[in-house]
Amino acid sequence: MSDNTLFIVFIAILGGALRVSTPFMFVALGECLTEKSGRVNLGLEGTLVLGAMSAYAISYHTGSPWLGVLAAGCAGSALGAMHGYICKLPKVNDVAIGIAMMLFGTGLAFFFGKAYIQPTAPRLGSIPLGDWTGNAQLATALQINSLLIIGILVAMAMSWAFANTKWGLIIRMTGDSAPAAMAMGVSVDLVRFLATTAGGFLAGVGGAFLSLYYPGSWNQGLSSGQGLMAVALVIFARWDPLRCVAAAFLFGATGAIGPALQSVGITQGYYFFNAAPYILTLFIMIASAGSKRASRDVPGELSITK
């Protein structure tokens, strides 16, 4: 393999990481926020798909992709709020509800989305970050979407807020020790409801990226489990928003290995490389399950038997 091919592969992976990571990032941040408050929302896969559909539909009808992004966020919040409300009822298991919400979200998206598979909606623009390099390939790879920057900013804001604001501390407190939060007069259910709703908003926005930027169309096979992988990613990132961003890039890069190799003519093991993110998820789950540091960082209230 010549230096040039290596360079192409590298660029393709970099470009892939920048493009593919955004939905992972938003879903992971949403899940991170929800889990910090002590609740697991496994339904974010459904939220992602419904967000993608809503964004595409609204963008198509209004002609404004950013209105589409907002609509995706609102659809996500609605699903999040529903999850948050149902889990508030006594003896409800959040994991089971999450799975139901995942099926509900995807089902709803497919039902309303039938009409939007054909038409073309206006898509989000991109910011050329790499034009100064003078290298056409690099310039294409470095074309990024503003949602990526927004995602990084959201992660930074979350990380700051968890340490420096009253609400941040209250969310961490609720997630780590519900009795302590109740003793302080904090309504645990309300905090979790709000955190799940806000988490749903972020996941919905992640869906808008899928349908409005990359791959940039609406169809039923759009997500292929990214919402579920993002949940694993939060565990890998040990519930830290900034590490969620890093983990999202890592997932994006592994997802790009297959196409990148194909672009230089290596087709052997194409499907194997395409499966890389799923294999990575598996290994991450195994590695983090045995990690003692992960068990220390896990919010104390997270449990599948609540």
Partner: peptide, 16 residues
């Protein structure tokens, strides 16, 4: 049983 929040520092526990 303690009512301090384990993941918060002492200072964070007091202020919150």
């Amino acid at each position: 049983h303690f009512t301090l929040v384990p993941c918060l520092t002492g200072a964070e526990n007091l202020v919150i």
